[in-house]
């Protein structure tokens, strides 16, 4: 018995039964030589081009606008000063001492990323409600990745009681003066405050793959950030910043996130009902429709900026389709993505 033939326009079909719609799109290539295409017209391994624009805001110290297809994110980085007397359990640092490994960034919470989805960026994200689970997860993932990649060094965020005279900027003063400074430094040069970077992300438009877009926006904004030169004013006993001098934030590396979702032949509801495992497809850079249909997703963050590929993080949730081989193969895909993003960030 042949199925009754009803002709439905594509958008209606997608709305009524999204899973068969995507499945039919992926399999319907009549001749096997043609690669499978998704509902959005892309191939399975095809990403949307990324557009990044830096310094689009005037009140932030660094900012970026990233577009990934129909996903648009705006990121603003703003520095604020945290005096050390307000830091509970503060451990003094001396200039020669290596700050690395002491975990100042994490212990004093100097990086504060927050993601706001509830801007009407998609019908499910309406304002007036507390941050959704997705917004909270995204913020936490960006937070932990910021710390684990070590993109921002704590040296840039320290404010010293004396202007930097000894180590790096010797050319600023004459040689004799530098010596004098050197003497004084020994006794009382200390960290008086830290810069806290508030990294705020605003989704203007949401069409899937929020993490890749948000992370690219964070990286672009941090690379664009320059903080005013701050010094300690002993008379007013506070940190004052220069109006004219600015210093570019040193950002190490260029980590790029690459996400793919796994689309399974059987529908989500059929999990555990004894249906044998069907075929599955790895969909790179999933859009909103695809994300709702996929249970399993993998995100890999790679950095190839020093010649060789370094994997900064791998996250995988849900499902069992991605095995060891797929993860290994995914590194190559992520590498390719890194090159694209690096081109866009220039």
């Amino acid at each position: 018995m042949s199925a009754p033939t009803i002709k439905l326009p594509a958008p209606l079909f997608a709305r009524l039964s999204p899973h068969p719609f995507l499945l039919r799109n992926l399999t319907s290539a009549a001749d096997p030589s043609r690669p499978a295409t998704r509902t959005n017209g892309r191939g399975t391994q095809e990403t949307r081009p990324l557009h990044a624009k830096a310094s689009s805001l005037s009140h932030a110290h660094g900012s970026s606008l990233v577009r990934l297809g129909d996903t648009t994110v705006l990121c603003g980085v703003r520095g604020e000063v945290l005096p050390v007397e307000r830091v509970p359990l503060f451990r003094p640092v001396d200039r020669g001492g290596v700050g690395l490994g002491r975990g100042e960034l994490r212990d004093y919470d100097l990086l504060v990323p927050n993601i706001e989805l509830a801007t009407g960026s998609a019908p499910q994200f309406l304002p007036g409600v507390p941050p959704t689970a997705l917004a909270q997860t995204l913020s936490t993932r960006v937070y932990s990745l910021l710390h684990s990649t070590g993109m921002v060094g704590v040296e840039d965020l320290r404010v010293w009681s004396k202007p930097a005279g000894g180590g790096e900027d010797t050319e600023m003063e004459g040689a004799g003066e530098g010596q004098e400074e050197e003497e004084g430094v020994k006794e009382e040069d200390r960290v008086v405050a830290y810069w806290v970077l508030y990294i705020d992300l605003l989704f203007v438009s949401f069409d899937g793959n929020p993490f890749d877009a948000a992370w690219a926006a964070v990286v672009a904004a941090l690379r664009n950030t320059s903080l005013p030169v701050a010094r300690w004013d002993p008379e007013r006993e506070m940190v004052v910043c220069s109006r004219t001098e600015k210093r570019q934030l040193n950002v190490k590396g260029l980590p790029v996130a690459c996400t793919a979702a796994v689309f399974e032949e059987k529908e989500l509801g059929e999990v555990g009902t004894g249906v044998p495992e069907g075929r599955h497809w790895l969909l790179l850079d999933p859009d909103r429709l695809e994300e709702t249909l996929c249970r399993e997703a993998i995100t890999m963050v790679v950095d190839c900026s020093d010649g060789e590929t370094r994997i900064k993080s791998i996250e995988k949730q849900g499902g069992t389709a991605i095995g060891r081989e797929l993860v290994r193969g995914f590194a190559t895909i992520a590498e390719k993505r890194w090159k694209e993003v690096q081109g866009a960030m220039k």
């Binding site: 520095g79 604020e80 000063v81 945290l82 005096p83 509970p88 005013p228 004013d233 004052v240 910043c241």
Partner: peptide
């Protein structure tokens, strides 16, 4: 601890 927006000289 509360942070202070930059004060300019």
């Amino acid at each position: 601890g509360a942070t202070i927006p930059p004060v300019f000289d």
